[in-house]
Amino acid sequence: MEEFEEPGPEIVKRFMYVNRRAPYGTIYAHECLEVILVAAAFDQDVSVVFVDDGVYELKKGQDTTDIGLKNFSKTYGALDDYDVEKIYVEKESLEARGLTADDLVIPVEVLAAKELGEIMAKQDIVLGS
């Protein structure tokens, strides 16, 4: 088991995880998801954002059988189990890629850049991939 000091109960920060990378071509998307799942165990205000090629992480129908890599798109479904409920996808990024929310593996809140930018600006910690 890993050891760390439990943070004082009084500290609750806004943590935002910004996914901007497509899956498989590089490890960035996968290792960012690892952080999110660990972070969910801390009682912090967590939100997860998909922008740019990050929206491809959520594309339905991923089948990695013939490339030898683990299909981690299924793991996003676990975010709900970890009580990560604030999941935002940028509208402009989806549209630029010809996608809609129906193409994604989990339910998300689609926000225009303006609204998403306002939420981003309120964060304490922003970790990107």
Binding site: E2, E3, F4, E5, P7, I11, K13, F15, E34, V35, V38, A39, A41, F42, Q44, D124, I125, L127, G128
Partner: peptide, 18 residues
């Protein structure tokens, strides 16, 4: 150590730079 150390640094430090 574990990834929890990263999250804990985010909580305890005043700033986190990536």
């Amino acid at each position: 150590s574990g990834l929890g150390q990263l999250v804990e640094a985010g909580i305890q430090a005043d700033r986190l730079v990536v």
